[in-house]
Design a protein around this nucleic acid. Structure first.
Lengths: 219, 219
DNA sequence: TACGTTGTTGAACGATCGTACAACAAGGAC
DNA sequence: GTCCTTGTTGTACGATCGTTCAACAACGTA
């Protein structure tokens, strides 16, 4: 009859999701809000709206706001590091090609994007006062540093014999700084230089390191 | 009599200040709050408490919060740039000494300080959505870039004749990136390397630029 | 078809935010 | 000593924040 027909054809008011999937949707919504509005976008109501769910649902899947933010930070970090690792893995397996792939991935989307910087800045701002953010940072930054350190080790191992030994620690610090600095500069003012120029600057640093091992002579 | 004595010896409940001085006190209090609590410290009540005045007074000297923050950003910026310029000015007037003084000032307090980074991060976070912050940034960053560009020009002018011409634009971009990256890295994790090592890395970059002009061969 | 689990909603709470404004008082002018 | 200017206070308002919770409903199960 009419009633049961109406019931049968009526759309459900909402769809239930498995907790794992709903959690991921909320994490994605959080990052989306951060990209769009920065720190101002980090409100439970904005995130719920972005995810298309009600306000109360968030606290059903996350005990509080800090836990949601930490989960979003963890996801954001691992997505970045995994992307870089994948790019390196797909490259031809000699040191220079791997480093080139790493640099190219670093200076391409989605890394090289003012919106990505906007997300980073918010997380950086929480770093000092949130032990939870500090913990996530420690656990994920490690993978990044190790990846870069390994590539430098490969490169130096293939350098001219007889060259003075390279201080790998300082070399990694310097390359990381150059990389991060160029990335930051481009995101703040995309018109100043082209991504290819940033890659060239980084490769010049690496060249200089491998050919002349200047860094070893420091201090 | 007793009453007039009490009146005569009673301390005034507050001291009136000239608008200019009170404005500066409020600006200082704002930066102090940012150093201590980051983005969370940026509330009118926290700033008023820090400055030792009542909440309502802020709106007597600044039309709204954005104007106060912009004024604080302008002060913070010019203090930094002026400090660097002063350090360069006091150095012996040959190019290498000026560059060395610049680097030493960059990697010393008050620039090299996690609290300083905390303040920067908050301002960076506002950059995209606040035209006021963008305007202040443009007007003050110009001085910084010009200072660095001038020093590089001096240095390259004294380089070996016959060397290929240096792309000053790219050189400035690279040195700025290396400098900012090292500064950022140290502030985030002060134990990783010593300020002297950062200076050495930057000077190695400059040496390489002047002696071999590699950057000119890029691209 | 009826039931039970639980993902989901929506309203409500107290706290804190930026701002507005009337009343007060410090300190110079006369 | 009195007045006037204006720097300063304290309160109040509306908006928004994170969190809580009782009620609802989607959907697998029997």
């Amino acid at each position: 009859m009419a009633l049961s027909d109406a019931r049968a054809t009526a759309k459900p008011r909402y769809e239930r999701q498995l907790p794992e999937q709903r959690r991921q949707e909320l994490i994605d919504a959080t990052i989306e809000c951060l990209k769009r509005d920065g720190h101002e976008g980090l409100s439970m109501r904005a995130i719920a709206t972005q995810a298309g769910v009600s306000l109360g649902l968030i606290n059903h899947h996350f005990p509080n706001k800090d836990d949601l933010v930490a989960a979003a930070y963890r996801h954001f970090n691992s997505q970045l590091v995994d992307g870089l690792k994948a790019a390196v893995h797909k490259a031809p397996s000699f040191p220079r090609a791997r480093m080139r792939a790493f640099l190219k991935a670093s200076f391409s989307r989605p890394n090289l994007d003012p919106e990505t910087l906007a997300v980073w800045v918010v997380f950086w701002g929480m770093y000092r006062h949130s032990p939870m953010i500090q913990g996530v940072h420690r656990e994920s930054y490690q993978g990044y540093v190790q990846l870069l350190r390994d590539m430098l080790t490969e490169l130096v191992a293939g350098a001219d014999a007889g060259a003075p030994p390279v201080d790998l620690r300082l070399a990694a610090i310097g390359l990381t700084a150059l990389l991060d600095g160029l990335w930051l500069e481009w995101c703040l003012q995309p018109g100043t230089f082209r991504p290819a120029e940033a890659i060239a600057l980084c490769e010049a640093w690496v060249d200089n390191l491998v050919r002349r091992a200047d860094v070893a002579a420091l201090e």
